[in-house]
Design a protein around this nucleic acid. Structure first.
Lengths: 345, 345
DNA sequence: ATTTAGCACTCTCAACTTGAGAGTGCTAAT
DNA sequence: ATTAGCACTCTCAAGTTGAGAGTGCTAAAT
């Protein structure tokens, strides 16, 4: 493998990353000395930078421009050099306060989480609603709407709500529907998909139709990888100089629009974990062509193996990693608390 | 006011619009003759174009480039010259078939509508969920989750579903909650916000707390201008050559992200109508600075004065208006049918 | 009274040139 | 091991140029 870097090399790599994050320009040896009042000369820095370049951590856009971190350089920086900053207390309070204000509605919380993340990171934020791996029946409600039409509202353990409009063969009174719902409720409470599927119940019409719809909705829910997706700050990404070329921006942002690709990306967080649960995906890691210029920071929140969701941001590779990772982690923590406090079980 | 245009002038304006829509380039007199095999010479066309330019319908990006339609030119074109194309039958069928397949879930329909619009128009599509101007109580459900926590699910006439988690002062059994819900249901069926507000009911705790939450949710719902908003094809806009400059694109798309601005824009459709219910907003019309390069086509669907939503697209000003207007109208028609068939009343 | 051919004129755009500036790598001295 | 010094490379912005596209005008033709 690669030789260990000296302390000075680590420092220099770190400084290059910082300076480049700030200015979006290649960083030269002289700039570095001046900016940080280093006690060594630019020539020494040049020698060190040559080493870092050979190791693959830095790159020259062209002969005789400054250096820019490579993907590998960023990865090394994030793994070994980035320091977790804690968000300033007043800001934590402001954010927590906003969440407290919206203490009514899961929808509102998630929207808020996305908004906060987008503003703090000046990048695009992604938040998914908490979702259970296994769909478990909690409560069914049948509401007569007109003639032979029924609004079915199904609540799953975890709080997910699914609705469907059923067209019955014959009209049914609200009383008979309520009675039917009651019977299904007492029989199906806390049932998994498998249990519901193998359930045998003798029911008069429209019982079988309703039960089949319940099964279908539960199967549908279980098939989903994530809950509903909330995005915010998508236009923030457009403001970054690396996306002055629209084509680049387009390919990156199209990832956020295509549900299947986004699911694919989010499913990464379900698998492995690094750095205290926060995943940092730099430059697409060879898999996502669209993300060549981007980095994605993701983490899970909620109750492990029960009710979890994903929060994260997508931004340019040149990103203040320390700060952003902290923010993502902070928001994930807030959402975890909210889920724990309000879990529907 | 302006003098009436001759038929030939109308034809030429129309051709300039078409050609420019196709190529995104300024259109010259010679190009026009060649492209459309006109029986008049380029010099004649130049004379006519001079007139159209003086009237404000055409514009030269610089001396001695071709002509480009002005906002006013587009407006004249849309009002007087654009011909409604009907979508080809096979396409109508494909789309209608897709809708039929998803004949289960309002959410799915709206998502689909947005997706179809975005693809057909190659622009960004906007669809809002159907929403009632007046919130009317339909059905309440209280679901015990744990200890002193209750999931409240409120269904409004029209089918809007609002949920909230209530923390009670004391624990309550599911039976007592169901009984409470039943009592409120029978008393509040079809009540408006005003009726609910002035309602006096003697209830044991947690009755008053629940009733207050119902009132609050209904007020909240009534305050909303639109239902939930579905966007799709936002990245389509980035592919247009007029948005090669990211800054332009950013300002246009940020309008879609900021809920308040978008509400503002959508509320236009609630006011006046033109062209068989389809509103065409060209170049921001002086009001929306962000839309200087864009056009927005909007129309309402649903049941007038009862349950309505908005569908529309946002694209570059250089847009195939005839086709796009038809598509928007077609999708609105489909959604109107769905709403009428499945109205929750 | 229109229409048109012809032509001079204007302006853009892409290609090319040039010089300043930034940054490097190397070498020799410290 | 570090550094001063210097030649070298490459980009970028600012000109320069010529081709091409399109116009407006005028005078002739219909």
């Amino acid at each position: 493998m690669k030789p260990e870097l000296t302390e000075r090399q680590k420092l220099l790599l770190s400084l290059v990353v910082h300076e480049h994050t700030r200015t979006a320009q290649p960083v030269g040896s002289k700039t570095l000395v001046e900016q940080f009042a280093l006690p060594i000369s630019s020539a020494t820095i040049r020698n060190e930078m040559t080493v870092l370049t050979e190791l693959g951590y830095l790159r020259q856009p062209h002969t005789s421009a400054g250096r820019v971190p490579t993907e590998e350089g960023y990865r090394f920086f994030v793994s070994n050099l980035a320091q977790q900053t804690t968000l300033p207390a007043p800001m934590r309070n402001t954010i927590a306060h906003q969440f407290y204000q919206a203490r009514q509605d899961l929808d509102e919380w998630l929207r808020l989480a996305a908004s906060v993340l987008a503003n703090q990171s000046q990048a695009a934020s992604i938040v998914t609603a908490p979702h259970t791996e296994k769909a478990v029946f909690k409560h069914l409600e049948l509401i007569s709407t007109r003639a032979a039409q029924v609004l079915m509202v199904l609540v799953l353990v975890g709080g997910e709500i699914r609705q469907q409009i059923l067209s019955l063969d014959d009209a049914a009174t609200q009383e008979s529907l309520s009675e039917l719902a009651g019977r299904i409720n007492s029989r199906c409470a806390n049932c998994s998909v498998e249990q519901i599927n193998s359930l045998e119940m003798a029911l008069d019409p429209p019982g079988p139709q309703v039960l089949e719809a319940v099964r279908q909705q539960m199967r549908l829910s279980q098939k989903l990888v994530t809950g509903e997706i909330y995005l915010d700050g998508v236009t923030n990404v457009l403001a970054e100089p690396e996306f002055a070329d629209t084509e680049q921006a387009r390919s990156a942002l199209s990832l956020l629009e295509e549900r299947s690709k986004l699911d694919d990306l989010l499913s990464r967080t379900i698998l492995g974990n690094e750095i205290g649960g926060v995943q940092v995906l730099i430059g697409g890691e060879g898999t996502w062509q669209e993300l060549r210029q981007c980095s994605v920071i993701l983490t899970r929140y909620g109750i492990p193996d029960q009710l979890t969701g994903t929060v994260g941001v997508l931004g340019p590779m040149r990103m203040p990693y320390g700060r952003t990772i902290s923010t993502v982690r902070f928001v994930a923590g807030l959402l975890s608390d909210l889920v724990a406090e309000n879990l529907i079980e």
